[in-house]
Design a protein around this nucleic acid. Structure first.
Lengths: 231, 231
DNA sequence: TTGACTTTGATAGTAATACTATCATATATT
DNA sequence: AATATATGATAGTATTACTATCAAAGTCAA
């Protein structure tokens, strides 16, 4: 019986749907672990094959190269994020409260989504924090964008932008603000561990709470009528 | 007679200072052209050697690998940026006016710095827009950070952060805001050409002006007493 | 049960990449 | 004139990112 949530992912990203076989599921779940441990550069299909007792050739039947695996994982991550935010804000009317929940989800997705996914969301979040930029900064960006590889990310940003718009219709740049907010959550979590002098967030237990409060603070200043931190 | 500005760059980044020989200068100026044209992945020392009528081995005497070239170029870029902002704000007292100039420089550095550099600043800016994240998202981040490879970038962010602090001492996250503003200039220029649905900026002649105004708008909302766009 | 089709495994091979090493030559320095 | 330094020329190695081929195993349908 299937209890996991399977996000719908653009089928041009893969050659064969990894969710339709045991090998496929192993490929993606073990990719997450290995990329998190080795880093994306040192990760490759030969090592992955060895790890899951399969072969390089078999994995190439699912994904044409390791970049596609990364694109697949990021689509998964953003789809999952979107879904979680949707579920958690369904019953809520006030866009300020919705935004507060969206921010919290953005930061805390790994703890909230445990046991809903084949994938280790903690590892996946670290991967996204480290690697997401590699996905969207490529010479192949136009072709990949036209193929719809980034739809999941764009959809999430759009729905944040609509929230901003609902809260403060006079705000001129909701889409830019949305990407900035998402990147702020990525960056500050990353910098806090790796380049601490670039952020006010202090590493440690309450780190995620700090990032959450910070993003609330920025939203409160950017949008009128939006004092999230006081609610 | 030397009329160019030579930014001081952490000497651990290179094996032999490229500014101290003709070959070295050719290496960096041709790297900029080639990375801009080919993309960083397809650029390598063999191709570079062929282009400048030298050899792979000779280039390896200057840089231990192509990543170091990218780090070198980004240090150059941020040093140059810092220097330009400093020169242009030297005589000015009002931190708001200083900030306005800093924002403009951030966006318009290629046109402002023509003929001050060996390097084509237009190409270099495109490279930074596309590749900067690759530099700071690496498994070697801690070692490289400890070696001081990112000092130029950090210094620039710090000086922006002090400006924010001068303008509005009550603002809680000046450093995060500084990195966000710098990244906003990088991202929106990139997205405008490559992922247009992620930004409100419209590609075209006035593109840089739009980005400038947008950043001013964000600063105006984030900091109290800071209506830059009205000045 | 036979036969066909699909999935995976096993193995081999190729072109390109990212270096490293060595030696010769040219040039500059003392 | 002797020496040190910079560069060029060439060769070689390990790894990577694929591609191709064939065999074995399991599945499904007549």
């Amino acid at each position: 019986m299937e209890v996991y949530i399977n996000p719908r992912i653009n089928s041009d990203i893969f050659l064969k749907n990894p969710l339709e076989s045991d090998l496929g599921k192993k490929i993606i779940s073990t990719s997450v672990k290995m990329i998190d441990e080795l880093g994306f550069e040192k990760f490759n299909f030969k090592k992955l094959g060895a790890e899951i007792n399969s072969t390089e050739a078999s994995i190439y039947r699912y994904f044409s190269n390791k970049n596609r695996v990364l694109i697949y994982l990021s689509s998964w991550y953003w789809e999952f994020m979107q879904y979680q935010i949707k579920v958690k804000t369904k019953e809520i009317e006030d866009p300020r409260k919705k935004l507060k929940i969206a921010i919290s989800t953005l930061v805390n997705i790994p703890t909230e989504a445990q046991n809903l996914s084949y994938l280790d969301m903690g590892s996946l979040q670290r991967i996204i924090n480290e690697q997401f930029y590699k996905i969207i900064r490529t010479k192949k960006i136009s072709i990949q964008n036209e193929s719809g590889f980034f739809e999941s990310y764009k959809r999430l940003c759009s729905s944040l932008a609509s929230l901003f718009n609902e809260i403060d219709g006079s705000f001129k740049y909701p889409m830019t603000m949305a990407t900035s907010i998402v990147e702020m959550s990525i960056n500050n979590t990353y910098c806090c561990s790796n380049l601490p002098s670039l952020t006010e967030i202090k590493c440690g237990e309450d780190q995620k709470g700090q990032v959450e409060m910070m993003i609330q603070y920025f939203c409160g200043r950017l949008l009128e009528q939006c004092e999230l931190s006081l609610n």
